[in-house]
Design a protein around this nucleic acid. Structure first.
Lengths: 302, 302
DNA sequence: CGATCTTACGGGATTCGTAAACATA
DNA sequence: TATGTTTACGAATCCCGTAAGATCG
């Protein structure tokens, strides 16, 4: 015969309430049901738990010993279930994401702030890193998911697009190109160019784009941080191409942004995660929040 | 939906063994059953516990969190059940009994020794006391049961006879009464009598018996301990009447025991316990052992 | 193609609740 | 006599196991 939780609950309830009838009411069951359950439990354990007369029920010595232990057991179980439900209802949990610096500095802070309003119980960890490192962190489960560009060739990693990030030309307000209606890559040949250095994924996109034109990229300067590149533009050292996601430049009144028509001057930004590994409820919720926010941010361009 | 122990066991087993099929074999169940159980558990908790592909099963983050907790829960339950079964199988436990001094010094030491051979896991506590105190200890649950005479007038206390204890006359080997074939109470009128003092239940029996003859008891000496009374007899100060249960006197070669025919010169010795309070398994076992031993000891006289 | 999980479904065991019997204060 | 437990029994439910389906390596 097997012990069931119902039997244990009946035992605790009867023991605490001191009667089958009272316990039956409390448990929304009938007395005969409890009677049977206690009989089964007693048989399973091989001990008599209650001394029952028709008029009163008292615990036996063994029952008195067992009651607090079993009570604790049931309380513990309830706590575990409550914790699980808490996680599922996103009242608690932790999500850690890895994202490119451009995303980490612009979209994510706002996303995190918004998300925290809806789910104050979930804490979010953010690690900014370059594309390769992001993939590493996903592989080693250091993060729940990553936010990066799609240029990944790993069958283990799954990409879900969030938005398209265009490369925009950033130039000083008075620059001659600022007047041109349309600007192409060829127009930039005789202008000093400021690129991100070769570690960055932005740079890789530019190199690819230039390679497709047959004209190699010849930057006059290379910067490790976007803020450096912008500072150089502002100082009149040249122009630079930066992802629109790093839109802090838009707010600078002495700079002008112009889009350049070229199929390769854009990249897909999206969520990277291990294939066939489900999101935790908290991570799923945050990812959904990111999708919603990116629609507002970039519009619904594919 | 309600959580069941089977679901938890399935979860732990699958989590530890890393597969539904392996767990199904281990649990002597079929794998669709486990599949259903995990589905139910996941629904109850509101969280996904496993990431399952057709070829492999891995715990989700939440599942990894929950596994050790639930494992411990089940282990605890098993320990509780094992403990209860231990008690029921009398591999463990403690019995405390209160008994009259005459019983405590003769029958009980042997009973305890015998019992210990059969049930080495049960420890037995013995408290020797007079009748009133025994009843007190039963009432206050200081002891599991008492061993005393039946002269108790408490509806709360239940008496189960063990044996009949006769009062025997103890006299020096050369005493004149030792030659008489039959001795009655009246024959003792002109002999110095040594009685137990008025606290003892033995004395009460003698007083009752004498009262029924119309002749008041007139002891020449009163002793608090039986050994004192015996010493007095041995010294020739008189004769005494003692319960046969205190049979150590039988072994003294310079003394003679003679029974006296009188309906009141006996008492029923038995087990006293609270009405409608069940024995613990250990207590029941020891009580049964006492019944068996007393049959050997006194014969099966009612 | 084989190993493994999921779905579908029928039969059997469990268990619940109603009603009557039973026991004690 | 009234309260409260146990017994009896019919019915609903639950759950398991078999078999077929689906999917991934």
């Amino acid at each position: 015969m097997n012990i069931t939780l119902r039997q244990l609950r009946a035992f605790v309830s009867i023991g605490n309430l001191g009667g089958f009838t009272r316990a039956a009411n409390a448990l929304h069951a009938t007395q005969p049901a409890l009677s049977a359950q206690i009989n089964q439990l007693e048989e399973s354990l091989g001990v008599r738990l209650f001394d029952r007369s028709t008029r009163s029920v008292t615990l036996t010595q063994v029952g008195r010993d067992l009651l607090p232990v079993i009570d604790k057991l049931l309380t513990d179980l309830q706590a575990v279930a409550a914790r699980a439900r808490d996680i599922s209802q996103k009242n608690t949990g932790r999500v850690t994401v890895a994202a490119l610096p451009s995303i980490s500095s612009t979209l994510l802070p706002r996303a995190i702030a918004d998300f925290h309003k809806s789910f104050p119980g979930i804490s979010i960890g953010l690690k900014d890193a370059l594309a390769e490192r992001i993939v590493d962190m996903i592989r080693s489960d250091e993060v729940d998911f990553g936010i990066s560009s799609s240029a990944i060739n790993d069958p283990q990693i799954e990409f879900t697009p969030l938005a398209t990030d265009r490369m925009v030309l950033v130039l000083p307000r008075g620059h001659k190109l600022a007047k041109s209606a349309k600007i192409s890559l060829e127009d930039l040949l005789d202008v000093p160019l400021i690129f991100m250095n070769r570690d960055s994924s932005v740079r890789r996109i530019l190199d690819d784009a230039y390679a497709s034109t047959g004209q190699p990229a010849t930057p006059s300067y290379e910067a490790a941080f976007m803020s450096t590149a912008i500072g150089m533009v502002r100082a009149g050292l040249g122009v630079t191409l930066l992802p629109s996601s790093a839109l802090e430049v838009k707010t600078a009144s002495d700079l002008v942004c112009r889009t350049i028509k070229h199929p390769k001057l854009k990249r897909k930004i999206g969520i990277l995660r291990k294939r066939r590994q489900s999101f935790s409820p908290a991570a799923a919720s945050f990812a959904a929040s990111l999708h919603a926010l990116s629609r507002d941010w970039f519009g619904s361009e594919a």
